[in-house]
Design a protein around this nucleic acid. Structure first.
Lengths: 110, 110
DNA sequence: TTGATATATGAGCATATACTCATATACTTG
DNA sequence: CAAGTATATGAGTATATGCTCATATATCAA
């Protein structure tokens, strides 16, 4: 979806799907937790306060989207961040939201 | 959701909501169309092939999220991009998807 | 004021998706 | 092999959201 050449619908579908994968607080929690480094499922369950089943399902979604990687070690499965764009993506959105909230706060202060 | 200090749930909710707003092909089409510059609703309806009612609703969502701005001029309402992070956001996702598809294509070629 | 045009909005319907429960599957140890 | 542990998955339910239809609302000119 570059500013220059318009992307075809098929590409926009993929982009939308990427955003959809990230449009879930629990998944963002998992991603944030993995910014500290690779973790096994049980650690992610503890870190996020979700149920094991739910976390497992979200991890599946993120892995299928190639945002996370996974490796087995005995009984445990470790997940890690696989896509380097996750950091700047989140930073951009946080920056934008911060500006908005700051602007709104300014309006209320008057 | 910086890599350094973990964001509270309330912030992750906001971030997720931002991604959710972008997780819709029709909305991305509108955004892409507006990368060319400000446009009235009817032009956006033509550019995207959506119904007027549906486009209007999507525009409302994007405007309420402060991603678009709007101004009236007689019978017409003009919309424009209001958030500068939209361009880098889309570029990041496109870049990531391109890499993935290239990698997948490579795997298939073997 | 009426009629035409442009856009926004109420209401209803269909579908996707998140969450949970239960348990299947995989791995390890005695 | 049985039992225990860790994780994935099938199935069902509730809810959010996209889309459409109809029309309300806003604007303008005659």
């Amino acid at each position: 979806m570059a500013k220059k050449a318009p992307l075809p619908d098929s590409a926009l579908e993929l982009v939308a799907r990427r955003f959809a994968v990230l449009a879930e607080p629990m998944r963002l929690r998992l991603i944030q937790s993995l910014f500290d480094g690779e973790k096994p499922v049980n650690a992610l369950v503890e870190a996020t306060g979700g149920t094991q089943a739910n976390i497992s399902r979200h991890l599946q979604t993120l892995t299928q989207a190639h945002l996370l990687s996974r490796r087995k070690e005995g009984l445990q499965v470790f997940y890690a961040i696989a896509d380097p764009t996750l950091v700047p993506l989140c930073e951009l959105v946080c920056g934008s939201l911060e500006k908005q909230l700051t602007k709104q706060a300014g309006v209320l202060k008057r």
